[in-house]
């Protein structure tokens, strides 16, 4: 059938088949409406597992406790016992294999995250002992005088 009407129709059909073939190979088999329906659940199902397999960096105090139980015990009785180890010691990653040693953040900037005196009348920040970083022994590391694990002023 050599007809100027039919020929473009065949071209269109060929393009449509081509697109459908490409789609069949390109779109993963688990792609589609999942449990949450078309509006909120239209996705590739295996991506959920990919997010679940994302590597953890922070391991938590229980992980630290497996080897450093002596330090944890010392900390628990002190005011700073509520602060997770990794906030100052850095994320564990795969310590002790990689990295072998963690870099401890002893900077003033770390301590004044909580201990810079602010006026916050409707926040618990007001109850934390605070200093004016510009006036309080400027340029010195806090840990030179204060023991970070037991910051009590009586034991200083």
């Amino acid at each position: 059938m050599k007809n100027h009407v039919w020929r473009p129709l065949f071209v269109v059909i060929a393009i449509a088949i081509g697109i459908l073939l490409f789609r069949a190979f390109y779109v993963p088999s688990d792609f589609g409406s999942q449990e949450q329906g078309y509006t909120f659940g239209y996705h590739r199902l295996s991506n959920e597992q990919e997010w679940k397999d994302y590597p953890e960096k922070y391991k938590g105090n229980d992980y630290c406790n497996e080897c450093h139980d002596d330090k944890i015990e010392e900390l628990e009785s002190a005011h700073h016992g509520t602060i997770p180890c990794e906030n100052c010691h850095g994320a564990a990653f795969d310590h002790p294999d990689d990295p072998e040693k963690l870099t401890i953040d002893r900077s003033r900037e770390l301590c004044i995250r909580c201990h810079a005196k602010l006026t916050m009348p409707s926040s618990d920040r007001n109850d934390i002992p605070g200093i004016d970083p510009a006036k309080h022994n400027q340029g010195e590391e806090c840990s030179e005088c204060h023991n970070p694990h037991n910051p009590s002023l009586e034991d200083m």
Partner: peptide, 29 residues
């Protein structure tokens, strides 16, 4: 004076998911 921490609200009917034209963002079960 107070602090307000913010993060994704993981809405039950998320506007962000509805507008995605390719099905790249979604809500898990």
């Amino acid at each position: 004076a107070f602090f307000v921490p913010k993060l994704c609200n993981h809405c039950t009917t998320p506007a962000c998911v509805q507008v995605c034209p390719v099905g790249a963002t979604y809500q898990t079960a």
